[in-house]
Design a protein around this nucleic acid. Structure first.
Lengths: 170, 170
DNA sequence: ACTTCTTGGTTGAGCCTTCAATCATAGACT
DNA sequence: AGTCTATGATTGAAGGCTCAACCAAGAAGT
Protein backbone atom coordinates (compact mmCIF):
# COMPACT_ATOMS: atom_id res chain seq x y z
CA UNK A 1 0.00 0.00 0.00
CA UNK A 2 3.01 2.29 -0.34
CA UNK A 3 2.65 5.45 -2.38
CA UNK A 4 4.04 5.41 -5.89
CA UNK A 5 7.71 6.31 -6.06
CA UNK A 6 7.61 8.56 -9.12
CA UNK A 7 10.71 9.14 -11.17
CA UNK A 8 12.71 12.30 -10.54
CA UNK A 9 13.27 14.61 -13.48
CA UNK A 10 16.78 13.26 -13.88
CA UNK A 11 15.55 9.69 -13.82
CA UNK A 12 12.85 10.53 -16.36
CA UNK A 13 15.51 12.04 -18.57
CA UNK A 14 17.77 9.02 -18.33
CA UNK A 15 14.90 6.64 -18.93
CA UNK A 16 13.74 8.45 -22.07
CA UNK A 17 17.26 8.84 -23.34
CA UNK A 18 17.79 5.15 -22.74
CA UNK A 19 14.62 4.20 -24.59
CA UNK A 20 15.56 6.38 -27.53
CA UNK A 21 19.08 5.00 -27.68
CA UNK A 22 17.93 1.40 -27.49
CA UNK A 23 15.32 1.95 -30.17
CA UNK A 24 17.89 3.45 -32.47
CA UNK A 25 20.52 0.80 -31.91
CA UNK A 26 18.04 -1.98 -32.47
CA UNK A 27 16.54 -0.21 -35.43
CA UNK A 28 19.94 0.26 -36.98
CA UNK A 29 21.11 -3.29 -36.44
CA UNK A 30 17.82 -5.01 -37.14
CA UNK A 31 17.23 -2.92 -40.24
CA UNK A 32 20.62 -3.77 -41.66
CA UNK A 33 20.11 -7.49 -41.14
CA UNK A 34 16.63 -7.39 -42.56
CA UNK A 35 17.69 -5.48 -45.66
CA UNK A 36 20.99 -7.19 -46.38
CA UNK A 37 20.48 -10.70 -45.06
CA UNK A 38 16.71 -11.02 -45.17
CA UNK A 39 16.38 -12.08 -41.56
CA UNK A 40 15.49 -10.43 -38.27
CA UNK A 41 18.10 -10.18 -35.56
CA UNK A 42 16.45 -12.88 -33.48
CA UNK A 43 16.93 -15.36 -36.30
CA UNK A 44 20.52 -14.29 -36.68
CA UNK A 45 21.00 -15.07 -33.00
CA UNK A 46 19.64 -18.56 -33.54
CA UNK A 47 22.18 -19.20 -36.27
CA UNK A 48 24.98 -17.80 -34.11
CA UNK A 49 24.05 -19.99 -31.16
CA UNK A 50 23.97 -23.08 -33.33
CA UNK A 51 27.25 -22.22 -35.03
CA UNK A 52 28.97 -22.06 -31.63
CA UNK A 53 27.56 -25.32 -30.33
CA UNK A 54 29.48 -28.60 -30.59
CA UNK A 55 28.44 -30.26 -33.82
CA UNK A 56 26.52 -27.09 -34.60
CA UNK A 57 23.60 -28.79 -32.89
CA UNK A 58 21.49 -28.01 -29.83
CA UNK A 59 18.37 -29.19 -28.10
CA UNK A 60 15.49 -26.82 -28.78
CA UNK A 61 15.18 -25.79 -25.15
CA UNK A 62 18.92 -25.17 -24.78
CA UNK A 63 18.80 -23.13 -27.94
CA UNK A 64 15.85 -21.15 -26.62
CA UNK A 65 17.73 -20.42 -23.42
CA UNK A 66 20.84 -19.23 -25.23
CA UNK A 67 18.74 -16.97 -27.44
CA UNK A 68 16.72 -15.71 -24.48
CA UNK A 69 13.69 -16.83 -26.43
CA UNK A 70 10.45 -18.51 -25.47
CA UNK A 71 10.03 -22.08 -26.65
CA UNK A 72 7.11 -20.98 -28.75
CA UNK A 73 9.01 -18.24 -30.50
CA UNK A 74 11.93 -20.52 -31.17
CA UNK A 75 9.64 -23.17 -32.56
CA UNK A 76 8.23 -20.73 -35.09
CA UNK A 77 11.69 -19.38 -35.86
CA UNK A 78 13.24 -22.77 -36.46
CA UNK A 79 10.29 -23.78 -38.60
CA UNK A 80 11.01 -20.80 -40.79
CA UNK A 81 14.77 -21.36 -40.82
CA UNK A 82 14.15 -24.96 -41.75
CA UNK A 83 12.09 -23.85 -44.71
CA UNK A 84 15.01 -21.65 -45.76
CA UNK A 85 17.24 -24.71 -45.63
CA UNK A 86 19.49 -23.21 -42.96
CA UNK A 87 18.53 -25.49 -40.10
CA UNK A 88 17.37 -29.09 -39.81
CA UNK A 89 15.46 -30.75 -37.02
CA UNK A 90 15.42 -34.34 -35.80
CA UNK A 91 13.96 -35.92 -32.71
CA UNK A 92 16.22 -37.04 -29.89
CA UNK A 93 16.54 -40.85 -29.85
CA UNK A 94 16.93 -41.19 -26.06
CA UNK A 95 14.10 -38.81 -25.13
CA UNK A 96 11.52 -38.86 -27.82
CA UNK A 97 9.91 -35.64 -26.63
CA UNK A 98 13.01 -33.60 -27.34
CA UNK A 99 14.37 -32.51 -30.68
CA UNK A 100 17.70 -31.34 -31.98
CA UNK A 101 18.25 -28.40 -34.28
CA UNK A 102 21.37 -28.31 -36.43
CA UNK A 103 22.89 -25.68 -38.64
CA UNK A 104 23.28 -26.79 -42.25
CA UNK A 105 26.21 -25.87 -44.45
CA UNK A 106 24.00 -23.38 -46.27
CA UNK A 107 22.99 -21.95 -42.92
CA UNK A 108 26.59 -21.56 -41.90
CA UNK A 109 27.41 -19.89 -45.19
CA UNK A 110 24.45 -17.54 -44.83
CA UNK A 111 25.61 -16.67 -41.34
CA UNK A 112 29.15 -15.95 -42.52
CA UNK A 113 27.83 -13.62 -45.19
CA UNK A 114 25.39 -11.90 -42.88
CA UNK A 115 28.06 -11.40 -40.23
CA UNK A 116 30.07 -9.06 -42.42
CA UNK A 117 27.47 -6.33 -42.59
CA UNK A 118 26.24 -7.07 -39.10
CA UNK A 119 29.46 -6.35 -37.22
CA UNK A 120 29.80 -3.16 -39.20
CA UNK A 121 26.31 -2.10 -38.14
CA UNK A 122 27.05 -2.94 -34.50
CA UNK A 123 30.23 -0.89 -34.64
CA UNK A 124 28.42 2.06 -36.17
CA UNK A 125 25.62 1.92 -33.63
CA UNK A 126 27.70 1.32 -30.54
CA UNK A 127 31.45 1.05 -30.49
CA UNK A 128 32.32 3.83 -32.92
CA UNK A 129 30.44 6.33 -30.80
CA UNK A 130 31.56 5.33 -27.33
CA UNK A 131 34.87 5.87 -25.58
CA UNK A 132 36.65 2.82 -24.11
CA UNK A 133 35.54 3.98 -20.67
CA UNK A 134 31.95 4.20 -21.80
CA UNK A 135 32.14 0.74 -23.34
CA UNK A 136 33.46 -0.66 -20.09
CA UNK A 137 30.77 1.16 -18.13
CA UNK A 138 28.05 -0.06 -20.46
CA UNK A 139 29.26 -3.61 -20.02
CA UNK A 140 29.09 -3.32 -16.27
CA UNK A 141 25.72 -1.62 -16.29
CA UNK A 142 24.29 -4.27 -18.58
CA UNK A 143 25.65 -7.06 -16.42
CA UNK A 144 24.17 -5.43 -13.33
CA UNK A 145 20.77 -5.20 -14.95
CA UNK A 146 20.94 -8.76 -16.21
CA UNK A 147 21.89 -10.08 -12.82
CA UNK A 148 19.12 -8.12 -11.18
CA UNK A 149 16.48 -9.32 -13.59
CA UNK A 150 17.57 -12.91 -14.16
CA UNK A 151 17.08 -14.21 -10.60
CA UNK A 152 13.80 -12.35 -10.55
CA UNK A 153 12.31 -15.12 -12.72
CA UNK A 154 13.74 -17.83 -10.51
CA UNK A 155 12.61 -15.99 -7.40
CA UNK A 156 9.14 -15.51 -8.82
CA UNK A 157 8.93 -19.19 -9.63
CA UNK A 158 10.11 -20.17 -6.18
CA UNK A 159 7.59 -17.78 -4.74
CA UNK A 160 4.83 -19.31 -6.82
CA UNK A 161 5.90 -22.74 -5.68
CA UNK A 162 5.76 -21.79 -2.05
CA UNK A 163 2.39 -20.07 -2.36
CA UNK A 164 1.06 -23.13 -4.16
CA UNK A 165 2.37 -25.36 -1.44
CA UNK A 166 0.89 -23.02 1.14
CA UNK A 167 -2.43 -23.21 -0.68
CA UNK A 168 -2.28 -26.98 -0.67
CA UNK A 169 -1.38 -27.02 2.97
CA UNK A 170 -4.19 -24.61 3.83
CA UNK B 1 36.90 -2.95 -49.88
CA UNK B 2 38.28 -2.71 -46.37
CA UNK B 3 38.52 -5.91 -44.38
CA UNK B 4 35.86 -6.52 -41.77
CA UNK B 5 36.71 -5.04 -38.38
CA UNK B 6 35.56 -7.93 -36.21
CA UNK B 7 34.64 -7.36 -32.60
CA UNK B 8 37.22 -8.09 -29.95
CA UNK B 9 36.33 -10.61 -27.26
CA UNK B 10 35.63 -7.76 -24.88
CA UNK B 11 33.42 -5.99 -27.38
CA UNK B 12 31.55 -9.21 -28.08
CA UNK B 13 31.01 -9.61 -24.37
CA UNK B 14 29.70 -6.10 -23.93
CA UNK B 15 27.45 -6.39 -26.98
CA UNK B 16 25.88 -9.62 -25.79
CA UNK B 17 25.51 -8.36 -22.27
CA UNK B 18 23.89 -5.24 -23.64
CA UNK B 19 21.45 -7.23 -25.80
CA UNK B 20 20.50 -9.41 -22.87
CA UNK B 21 20.00 -6.46 -20.56
CA UNK B 22 17.90 -4.56 -23.09
CA UNK B 23 15.75 -7.60 -23.79
CA UNK B 24 15.12 -8.09 -20.12
CA UNK B 25 14.33 -4.47 -19.35
CA UNK B 26 11.95 -4.23 -22.27
CA UNK B 27 10.44 -7.59 -21.48
CA UNK B 28 9.88 -6.60 -17.87
CA UNK B 29 8.38 -3.20 -18.66
CA UNK B 30 6.40 -4.23 -21.70
CA UNK B 31 5.09 -7.33 -19.99
CA UNK B 32 3.86 -5.37 -17.00
CA UNK B 33 2.01 -2.87 -19.18
CA UNK B 34 0.52 -5.58 -21.34
CA UNK B 35 -0.70 -7.58 -18.37
CA UNK B 36 -1.88 -4.78 -16.12
CA UNK B 37 -2.96 -2.09 -18.57
CA UNK B 38 -3.69 -4.13 -21.69
CA UNK B 39 -1.46 -2.06 -23.93
CA UNK B 40 2.04 -2.34 -25.36
CA UNK B 41 4.67 0.16 -24.31
CA UNK B 42 4.55 1.94 -27.65
CA UNK B 43 0.89 2.76 -27.11
CA UNK B 44 1.65 3.95 -23.61
CA UNK B 45 4.20 6.33 -25.12
CA UNK B 46 1.53 7.73 -27.43
CA UNK B 47 -0.73 8.49 -24.50
CA UNK B 48 2.15 10.08 -22.59
CA UNK B 49 3.11 12.30 -25.51
CA UNK B 50 -0.48 13.48 -25.93
CA UNK B 51 -0.91 14.07 -22.21
CA UNK B 52 2.10 16.40 -22.23
CA UNK B 53 1.03 18.39 -25.27
CA UNK B 54 -0.89 21.66 -24.97
CA UNK B 55 -4.58 20.83 -25.12
CA UNK B 56 -3.54 17.17 -25.00
CA UNK B 57 -3.55 17.37 -28.79
CA UNK B 58 -0.89 16.91 -31.45
CA UNK B 59 -0.59 16.63 -35.20
CA UNK B 60 -0.06 13.04 -36.24
CA UNK B 61 3.40 13.69 -37.60
CA UNK B 62 4.50 15.60 -34.49
CA UNK B 63 3.19 12.77 -32.40
CA UNK B 64 5.08 10.26 -34.51
CA UNK B 65 8.28 12.21 -34.07
CA UNK B 66 7.91 12.41 -30.31
CA UNK B 67 7.25 8.70 -30.11
CA UNK B 68 10.11 7.92 -32.48
CA UNK B 69 7.53 6.07 -34.51
CA UNK B 70 6.94 5.73 -38.23
CA UNK B 71 3.84 7.46 -39.55
CA UNK B 72 2.48 4.09 -40.52
CA UNK B 73 2.95 2.58 -37.11
CA UNK B 74 1.38 5.57 -35.45
CA UNK B 75 -1.57 5.46 -37.79
CA UNK B 76 -2.27 1.88 -36.83
CA UNK B 77 -1.73 2.66 -33.16
CA UNK B 78 -4.05 5.65 -33.09
CA UNK B 79 -6.69 3.70 -34.96
CA UNK B 80 -6.60 1.14 -32.20
CA UNK B 81 -6.51 3.71 -29.41
CA UNK B 82 -9.46 5.45 -31.02
CA UNK B 83 -11.41 2.20 -30.95
CA UNK B 84 -10.59 1.94 -27.24
CA UNK B 85 -12.04 5.40 -26.76
CA UNK B 86 -8.76 6.82 -25.47
CA UNK B 87 -7.95 9.06 -28.40
CA UNK B 88 -9.99 10.98 -30.96
CA UNK B 89 -8.97 12.21 -34.38
CA UNK B 90 -10.15 15.17 -36.41
CA UNK B 91 -8.80 16.74 -39.56
CA UNK B 92 -6.95 20.03 -39.41
CA UNK B 93 -9.14 22.87 -40.71
CA UNK B 94 -6.31 24.98 -42.16
CA UNK B 95 -4.49 22.09 -43.86
CA UNK B 96 -6.98 19.45 -44.78
CA UNK B 97 -4.31 16.81 -45.27
CA UNK B 98 -3.26 16.90 -41.66
CA UNK B 99 -5.09 15.49 -38.69
CA UNK B 100 -5.04 16.07 -34.96
CA UNK B 101 -5.03 13.38 -32.32
CA UNK B 102 -6.34 14.23 -28.86
CA UNK B 103 -6.37 12.36 -25.61
CA UNK B 104 -9.86 11.82 -24.22
CA UNK B 105 -10.73 11.97 -20.55
CA UNK B 106 -10.97 8.19 -20.51
CA UNK B 107 -7.57 8.03 -22.15
CA UNK B 108 -6.08 10.30 -19.53
CA UNK B 109 -7.62 8.23 -16.78
CA UNK B 110 -6.30 5.03 -18.33
CA UNK B 111 -2.87 6.59 -18.52
CA UNK B 112 -2.96 7.66 -14.89
CA UNK B 113 -3.87 4.16 -13.82
CA UNK B 114 -1.30 2.53 -16.05
CA UNK B 115 1.43 4.88 -14.83
CA UNK B 116 1.30 3.49 -11.30
CA UNK B 117 2.46 0.02 -12.20
CA UNK B 118 4.65 1.28 -14.98
CA UNK B 119 6.97 3.46 -12.91
CA UNK B 120 7.31 0.63 -10.46
CA UNK B 121 8.37 -1.70 -13.27
CA UNK B 122 10.85 0.86 -14.58
CA UNK B 123 12.35 1.23 -11.12
CA UNK B 124 12.64 -2.51 -10.68
CA UNK B 125 14.25 -2.98 -14.06
CA UNK B 126 16.62 -0.04 -13.99
CA UNK B 127 16.95 2.35 -11.11
CA UNK B 128 16.75 -0.07 -8.22
CA UNK B 129 19.69 -2.02 -9.58
CA UNK B 130 22.03 0.79 -10.60
CA UNK B 131 24.14 3.10 -8.49
CA UNK B 132 23.74 6.87 -8.96
CA UNK B 133 27.04 6.86 -10.85
CA UNK B 134 25.81 4.14 -13.15
CA UNK B 135 22.57 5.99 -13.78
CA UNK B 136 24.52 9.10 -14.70
CA UNK B 137 26.83 7.08 -16.94
CA UNK B 138 23.90 5.34 -18.62
CA UNK B 139 22.32 8.69 -19.35
CA UNK B 140 25.47 9.97 -20.96
CA UNK B 141 26.05 6.80 -22.93
CA UNK B 142 22.47 6.84 -24.19
CA UNK B 143 22.74 10.48 -25.21
CA UNK B 144 25.99 9.77 -27.02
CA UNK B 145 24.41 6.93 -28.97
CA UNK B 146 21.33 8.96 -29.76
CA UNK B 147 23.39 11.86 -31.02
CA UNK B 148 25.53 9.56 -33.10
CA UNK B 149 22.58 7.84 -34.69
CA UNK B 150 20.16 10.74 -35.08
CA UNK B 151 22.23 12.86 -37.47
CA UNK B 152 22.96 9.69 -39.34
CA UNK B 153 19.47 9.86 -40.83
CA UNK B 154 19.82 13.52 -41.66
CA UNK B 155 23.27 12.91 -43.09
CA UNK B 156 22.02 9.98 -45.15
CA UNK B 157 19.20 12.11 -46.50
CA UNK B 158 21.55 14.93 -47.37
CA UNK B 159 23.81 12.41 -49.00
CA UNK B 160 20.95 11.03 -51.03
CA UNK B 161 19.99 14.54 -52.06
CA UNK B 162 23.46 15.34 -53.25
CA UNK B 163 23.85 12.08 -55.14
CA UNK B 164 20.49 12.64 -56.75
CA UNK B 165 21.50 16.11 -57.76
CA UNK B 166 24.77 14.74 -59.02
CA UNK B 167 22.86 12.18 -61.06
CA UNK B 168 20.67 14.87 -62.52
CA UNK B 169 23.68 16.99 -63.28
CA UNK B 170 25.51 14.06 -64.87
C1' DA C 1 -5.31 27.40 -65.00
C1' DC C 2 -2.17 23.09 -65.46
C1' DT C 3 1.00 20.00 -64.76
C1' DT C 4 4.40 18.32 -61.44
C1' DC C 5 6.32 17.56 -57.02
C1' DT C 6 5.92 17.23 -52.24
C1' DT C 7 3.74 16.50 -47.91
C1' DG C 8 0.51 14.31 -44.39
C1' DG C 9 -1.58 10.47 -43.65
C1' DT C 10 -3.90 5.88 -44.40
C1' DT C 11 -4.22 1.11 -45.88
C1' DG C 12 -3.35 -3.93 -46.65
C1' DA C 13 -0.23 -7.73 -46.98
C1' DG C 14 3.21 -10.34 -44.87
C1' DC C 15 5.98 -11.41 -41.10
C1' DC C 16 7.14 -11.89 -36.08
C1' DT C 17 5.74 -12.37 -31.27
C1' DT C 18 2.74 -13.67 -27.61
C1' DC C 19 -0.65 -16.33 -25.41
C1' DA C 20 -3.23 -20.24 -24.47
C1' DA C 21 -4.30 -24.76 -25.83
C1' DT C 22 -2.56 -29.06 -27.18
C1' DC C 23 0.06 -33.40 -27.73
C1' DA C 24 3.22 -36.97 -26.76
C1' DT C 25 6.44 -38.82 -23.81
C1' DA C 26 8.80 -39.31 -19.40
C1' DG C 27 8.85 -39.77 -14.50
C1' DA C 28 6.70 -40.52 -9.93
C1' DC C 29 3.62 -42.37 -6.83
C1' DT C 30 0.28 -46.02 -5.33
C1' DA D 1 0.37 -52.04 -14.18
C1' DG D 2 -2.21 -47.58 -13.66
C1' DT D 3 -2.85 -43.00 -12.72
C1' DC D 4 -1.11 -38.37 -12.15
C1' DT D 5 1.93 -34.88 -12.95
C1' DA D 6 5.76 -32.67 -15.28
C1' DT D 7 8.46 -31.79 -19.36
C1' DG D 8 9.73 -30.76 -24.35
C1' DA D 9 7.91 -29.03 -27.99
C1' DT D 10 4.41 -27.56 -31.48
C1' DT D 11 0.30 -25.12 -33.13
C1' DG D 12 -3.20 -21.45 -34.32
C1' DA D 13 -5.26 -17.20 -33.32
C1' DA D 14 -4.75 -12.43 -32.29
C1' DG D 15 -2.21 -8.38 -32.28
C1' DG D 16 1.69 -5.21 -33.57
C1' DC D 17 5.34 -3.75 -36.92
C1' DT D 18 7.30 -2.94 -41.55
C1' DC D 19 7.09 -2.16 -46.18
C1' DA D 20 5.27 -0.54 -50.28
C1' DA D 21 1.43 1.31 -52.49
C1' DC D 22 -1.74 4.64 -52.37
C1' DC D 23 -4.75 8.97 -51.91
C1' DA D 24 -5.80 13.62 -51.09
C1' DA D 25 -4.37 18.23 -50.61
C1' DG D 26 -1.02 21.91 -50.73
C1' DA D 27 3.06 24.21 -53.17
C1' DA D 28 5.81 25.30 -57.00
C1' DG D 29 6.89 26.09 -61.61
C1' DT D 30 5.13 26.98 -66.32
Amino acid sequence: MSRTRWLSDTEQGVWREFLAAVDMVRGHVDGQLQRDAGMPHTYYEVLVALSEAPGRTLRMSDLAERCRSSRSRLSHAVARLEKSGWVTRRTCPTDKRGSFASLTEEGFAALETAALGHVEAVREALFDALSPDQVRALGEISATIRNKLTPRCAAAMLDEDSTERAAEAG
